[in-house]
C-alpha cells in the first residue's frame, strides 16, 4: 500500500507541477480569472443589490442558489450523523452517581432503581473529574459575549467580513463550549435534540422558503426583488433585505446542526455523556 501511495503521489505531483508552469503568476491582475467575470460583480454590486460586501452579494444573491445547497449539505451532515450514530435511549446499561456528602461513587446497573439527580446524589460521567469552578465560571461569563458577537457577525455581513455561516458557527461554538465546560446532559436538557433538529430544518426552510415565495410572487426562484411589495422598499433594497433574511436562516441552520453533530459525535449516539 505504501509503495502504491508513493507512486501515485509521485505521478500526481509531477503532473500538477508540470501543468502549474502554464499558470498565470500569483496576483496577476491580467489573468483571465481576474478579467472575465469578476469585474461585473465588483462594479455592479451596489447598483444591483446595494450590498457593499461583494462576497456577501455574490454568495447570497448572484450565486444564492449554490449557497442554498451549501446549507442543505450541512443539514445532510447533521441528518447523516444522527442517522448513523443515534442509539435508542433505553439501551443505557449502567449509570454513575456520586453521593456528595461522602464523596462515594455509586454504579447502578438497573436504571429503574436510580435515585433522582439532586443535591445529595449527583449524576456523574463514567470517567468523573471534579468540577472545575474556574472553567465553569469563565465560560459562563464568556458565552453571552460570544453570542452577541455572533449576532453582530450575522447582521453585519453586508458591510464587513461575516454572514450566516460564520455567525452560525460562532453561535454553535458557544453552546458547545457550554457542553464542554459543564456536561452533555445539562446541555441536552436546555436545547434538546428534537429542537436542534427542527431548528436546523427550519433554518434551511427559511432560505428555500424565501426562494419559493419569490416563485409564488411570479418571479424566478430566489429573485429577492419580488419581495419588494412585501418589504415596502424598492427592488434593489429588497435584494439587500432578502440577503439578510436568508443569512438569518443560514445562521439558524448552521448553529443547530453544529450542536446536533456535537451531541451525536461526542457521545457516540448515546447523548448521556460527552467530552
Amino acid at each position: 500500500m505504501k509503495l502504491i501511495g508513493k507512486l501515485t503521489i509521485f505521478l500526481c505531483g509531477t503532473l500538477l507541477i508540470v501543468f502549474a508552469n502554464k499558470f498565470p503568476d500569483f496576483g496577476d491582475p491580467h489573468s483571465p480569472a481576474a478579467t472575465h467575470l469578476s469585474p461585473y460583480f465588483i462594479e455592479h454590486t451596489m447598483a444591483d443589490t446595494s450590498v457593499p460586501n461583494i462576497v456577501t452579494s455574490v454568495l447570497a444573491d448572484y450565486r444564492g442558489y449554490d449557497t442554498m445547497f451549501e446549507t442543505t449539505v450541512i443539514l445532510a451532515a447533521g441528518l447523516a450523523c444522527f442517522f448513523l450514530l443515534r442509539l435508542p435511549e433505553e439501551e443505557e446499561k449502567e449509570i454513575y452517581f456520586r453521593h456528595v456528602p461522602t464523596g462515594v461513587t455509586i454504579r447502578i446497573e438497573e436504571c429503574g432503581a436510580a435515585p433522582e439527580d439532586s443535591e445529595v446524589f449527583q449524576r456523574i460521567d463514567s470517567q468523573w473529574v471534579p468540577c472545575d469552578i474556574i472553567i465553569r465560571s469563565t465560560s459562563r461569563l464568556l458565552i453571552p459575549f460570544i453570542q452577541i458577537f455572533a449576532l453582530y457577525v450575522v447582521a453585519h455581513g453586508h458591510h464587513s467580513p461575516g454572514g450566516g455561516f460564520q455567525g452560525g458557527v460562532v453561535l454553535g461554538a458557544a453552546v458547545i463550549l457550554f457542553a464542554i465546560s459543564h456536561n452533555l446532559r445539562t446541555t441536552v436538557a436546555k436545547i434538546g435534540e428534537k429542537s436542534a433538529a427542527i431548528m436546523s430544518a427550519a433554518g434551511v426552510f427559511i432560505y428555500a422558503g424565501t426562494g419559493a415565495l419569490c416563485l409564488v410572487l411570479g418571479e424566478s426562484f430566489l429573485n429577492y426583488g419580488a419581495l419588494a411589495p412585501i418589504l415596502g422598499t424598492d427592488r434593489v433594497m429588497a435584494r439587500s433585505h432578502g440577503i439578510l433574511i436568508v443569512e438569518i436562516g443560514v445562521a439558524l441552520a448552521v448553529m443547530s446542526v453544529m450542536i446536533w453533530i456535537y451531541y451525536n459525535l461526542s457521545s457516540a449516539g448515546k447523548q448521556d455523556e460527552g467530552l
Binding site: T72, L75, L79, A197, I198, S200, A201, A202, V204, F205, A208, G209, A212
Partner: peptide
Amino acid sequence: LAALVVAA
C-alpha cells in the same frame, strides 16, 4: 422543500 419538512 419536502426533504426539509420530512426531516422535521
